[in-house]
Design a protein around this nucleic acid. Sequence first.
DNA 1: TGTTCAATAATCGTATACAATACGATCATC
DNA 2: GATGATCGTATTGTATACGATTATTGAACA
Lengths: 235, 235
Amino acid sequence: MGEQRTPGLRAQSAYRALRRAIIEQALKPGMKLPEDSIGEQLGVSRTLVREAFNRLAVEGLVELKPNRGASVAYPTLEEARDVFEVRRGLERLVAENLAGRLTAAQAAELEAHVRQEEKAHGQDGPESIRLSGEFHIKLAEMTGNALLLRYVQESSSRCSLILAIYGRPHSSECAVSEHRQLIEALRAGDAARAAELMDHHLRSVVTRALLTPRVEPDIRAVLAPYALSEGLNPS
Amino acid sequence: MGEQRTPGLRAQSAYRALRRAIIEQALKPGMKLPEDSIGEQLGVSRTLVREAFNRLAVEGLVELKPNRGASVAYPTLEEARDVFEVRRGLERLVAENLAGRLTAAQAAELEAHVRQEEKAHGQDGPESIRLSGEFHIKLAEMTGNALLLRYVQESSSRCSLILAIYGRPHSSECAVSEHRQLIEALRAGDAARAAELMDHHLRSVVTRALLTPRVEPDIRAVLAPYALSEGLNPS
DNA sequence: TGTTCAATAATCGTATACAATACGATCATC
DNA sequence: GATGATCGTATTGTATACGATTATTGAACA
């Protein structure tokens, strides 16, 4: 029963698998996640699936409702706004932290990354989106601040989920030129400018990719004015 | 066996109990946390204790080592630095967000809180520390940004743990006057000044409370120079 | 045809069971 | 007396068991 080769690894694997599946939209927002079938699919018991769900829940990728199980999170527009705002603040911190502190090797790595982005810019497949995201993660890693990295990763993955719901189909999220400018400011050690560039960059990511909600799923709000105009009393 | 009155509540209770016990230092940093004795004490099974541990682990309050169980986290000085830096960034965001947006009721609530702090300032018991912390939580709540609140709460509790290890015994963490100034800037709607005040405030919390490490527990770092001087090769 | 309600099935919440590992004591050896 | 091997016990990792709750189906009824 409890044959444990490398303990905690299977739990971690389950977590990672689910996380990737959600971010890559193999598991779509709102989708139900029954413990048994998922455990069966992953080759682990409900215990470990549950553990994974709990971690994913604190990261905001799954929702956990009492006695009704887990489902892939479906953030509201308001939550989306919140996440983007926090992410902007965090990444501004990254920029300030990195300005002037970038080693030559790090700068080179970032530039190599941007060149890859440029190459993949033509085909706007998932490759381009993945690279854009990784650029920001790389920056957070370079601060050497583990907590900052964790928060940036977390808000990034929530952003992925959000764009999956509210974003236009294949918007290439980041403009490569903006990444280039940012690197330049970091090299120059201009913290204020780097922070400003990062802030502006993330703002434009939102406006480029985010649209107004496609549907208005709140039936009450839709019907309320009609009810009122008829003298009815919507509870 | 599975009699569930209000499901998830017992799990949450276990989590809350442990969390409070850690923050209030009833469970001291580094202390071992055996699953079954804790479960017995709390009146729940290992399953729920484990669930609580996992949540506390992602919050950085407990450490989880494979096959060796959980213990209350014992952050290094470097981690401490990281946490404080992130917290500063987050709370700066809070200040910017709130500047000019504070309702009259909210401002009144904050001022009432500060008056309480002032009253408790004489006796520097745990009461004073708790109130100082709550002021920052209240601010984060008022932004209405749930994610920001969660991050601020998390980094705040980690700060408590850190100060328990590295802080001076009874430093009253926050200067009440600094809280007052901050409220004033928020009312005036001066975002830049509010952010600057918050940043400065948190910096001085660190310098007021944080000391250099009392002991050097890292044997490797101690021995490395000796080894090198003998031509040895410390791994 | 659509609605209500009961029986059944699916799924969750929690406790427990069992294997595997780590820790500590005892004992042999130098 | 210190060092190292061996066994027993405590504790962890994971699976399963079982009561409780929710979802679903189907039949009776309007």
